[in-house]
């Protein structure tokens, strides 16, 4: 690997670290919105969000907090919540939900034929919330 390649790799890693830090700061800023801090005005908050996001976009102009995959996961989970489990289930409604699920999978596979659902990532992400619920 040439010196030039090494340098560009270092820059890429630095950018990724900075991007992660900026996304983290943005989410922390969201979390600190409530209860409101008296020393922090609404204008201050707006400027802070604007500054953080501008810096994120400068590093990666195509960055999205919610990418196609996450929004797809959200849709799937919502549909699974809609599955009717009453003693006498509405099978017609459930079959419609399955068709909508199938439709979404088909779209994702059209975009990327080898696309797969990151089941492990979803479970890992869901668990802290499940624990909160149980407590």
């Amino acid at each position: 690997m040439s010196q030039k390649d090494n340098n560009s790799e270092d820059i890429a890693i630095d950018n990724f670290t900075e991007l992660t830090q900026l996304v983290k700061s943005t989410l922390q800023t969201v979390d600190e919105l409530f209860p409101p801090k008296p020393e922090f005005s609404f204008e201050d908050m707006m400027i802070q969000f604007y500054t953080l996001k501008s810096r994120i976009k400068k590093i990666d102009p195509s960055w999205k907090f919610e990418n196609t995959d996450t929004s797809y996961v959200f849709e799937i989970l919502k549909l699974l919540d809609a599955v009717n489990i009453e003693e006498i289930p509405d099978l017609q409604q459930n079959a419609k939900i399955c068709q909508r699920l199938l439709h979404r999978v088909r779209i994702m596979r059209q975009i990327n034929p080898s696309w797969s659902l990151d089941v492990e990532g979803i479970i890992k992400f869901l668990y802290p919330t499940l624990n909160t619920q149980l407590s």
Partner: peptide, 26 residues
């Protein structure tokens, strides 16, 4: 709903990255 509940930025970022890297693996 729960005044003590907090966003876990690390877990959210991990989730975003896992979906992205899951796509990138293909």
């Amino acid at each position: 709903i729960d005044p003590l509940w907090k966003i876990n930025p690390t877990s959210v970022i991990e989730f975003i990255n896992s979906t992205l890297s899951a796509s990138a693996r293909k």
